[in-house]
Design a binder for these strands. Structure first.
Lengths: 219, 219
DNA sequence: TCGCAAGGTCTACGTCGTAGGTATACGCTG
DNA sequence: CAGCGTATACCTACGACGTAGACCTTGCGA
């Protein structure tokens, strides 16, 4: 198959952008860098993406495509809502440094729309009217994206050396506080800097959101 | 007082940075631009800020300084928590495009520490143990920052012309969806794009967070 | 066979953050 | 009042970034 000597596949570009962002952060995702990875001129990317923003949007869409919506079931609405939101978080978790890109794409990309619609269904089933469901759903989704974005340790992945060093610095800063003045902060310093377990962190995050929804419904 | 011909006041620099960011967005905050505003060379700023990040940190601290903590009272803990978080949100609301900068500064700047400590106090009073309070507090604060950051209309302020145009575009995109497939989204399109009232938006946000906290405590 | 569009290349512009070295004026010391 | 250290501002320059515009090459459909 004598294809063109150099043929760029947009989805492969997005793939390497994702990998790059995961390992080195979003700032490392640069048109030149991406082009280099695919042995191509930076400008070649413009044949497939309108501009850099368009590429980042594609990256966001890519994350949303990983959502695995839970199968319908006959459990109570809030239980199913919990599963739905967990599925969403699970899709973003592997890519905390990129998760923020989904914010503007949920109501655009198909998987995002699907999730949004089904989430609203559950809220309506729970007793919210349509508009209220829209606002509550919107805020819940935003909260969960932030949950991933601010996952402790999302700052720097590289080698655990520098990462460990960064944590040490933060710990030192909190440790230097006056325990008389900030007794709770200093005594919970370790937890504040790096929660016990990542799984617990996410479990708590989703629980908080769902409990909040249940709470405002009952009010 | 024969002061220096040109004397740069760091706090004034931060002031104009804030103003610039509020009106034109964070991207407009550039060392050259800032220098120009103060009739100075870009490099002069480096005498007062280690680097751009340092300046942005100062901007974040500046926002935190606007927090007006509620006076102690004998109301129930969750009521006082609500007031505390509302005070935090109120401090950030005027500057949605900058609010995100506070994320990394809360446990550094004094007003942030103060708020964090007092928030943890309330949580402990509510029955959480110290570590749990730390995690819950952390996530709540993050959620609220996001609430401000993603305030509808935080994207572009400039003249209402372009802003209106952007909204129109989004509405059109949602309007083009198949109502058969996304009945709830299409029928709540207006709300999804631009909530009814900003005050209600924030009220709901804080309510959701507090209700969530109450909910996980009772579990 | 030929035309032409799709896709890649080259060059260049303006902007950004910032490294390194230099000049100037304030304000303290004697 | 002389002298000097230090704080402050300046200048020049670099490398990276996103991207506009004109050009070349390939291979498919008519």
């Amino acid at each position: 198959m004598p294809t063109l000597t150099k043929r760029l596949d947009p989805t492969q570009v997005v793939d390497s952008a994702l990998e790059l962002a995961d390992t080195e952060g979003l700032d490392a995702v640069t048109l030149r860098r991406l082009a280099q990875l695919h042995e191509v001129t930076p400008m070649a990317l413009y044949r497939h993406f309108a501009d850099k923003n368009d590429l980042l949007n594609a990256l966001g869409d890519r994350l949303l495509a990983d959502i695995e919506l839970p199968a319908p079931s006959d459990q109570p609405w809030d239980r199913r809502l919990h599963q739905m939101l967990t599925a969403f978080v699970d899709a973003l978790r592997p890519h905390p440094r990129v998760a923020g890109l989904t914010l503007t794409r949920i109501l655009v990309a198909e998987p995002g729309l699907e999730m949004a619609e089904r989430t609203m269904e559950l809220l309506v089933e729970g007793g919210f009217d349509t508009d209220y469901a829209a606002e509550v759903g919107r805020q819940s989704i935003c909260s969960l994206i932030t949950l991933v974005t601010t996952e402790p340790g999302a700052g720097e992945n590289p080698e655990p050396a520098a990462r460990e060093q960064g944590l040490r610095l933060k710990r030192a800063a909190l440790g230097a506080l006056d325990p008389k003045r900030y007794p709770l902060i200093t005594s919970a310093a370790d937890t504040l800097i790096c929660p016990t377990s990542t799984d617990q962190y996410y479990a708590l995050g989703v629980d908080l959101v769902v409990a909040g929804i249940r709470g405002v419904r009952d009010a």
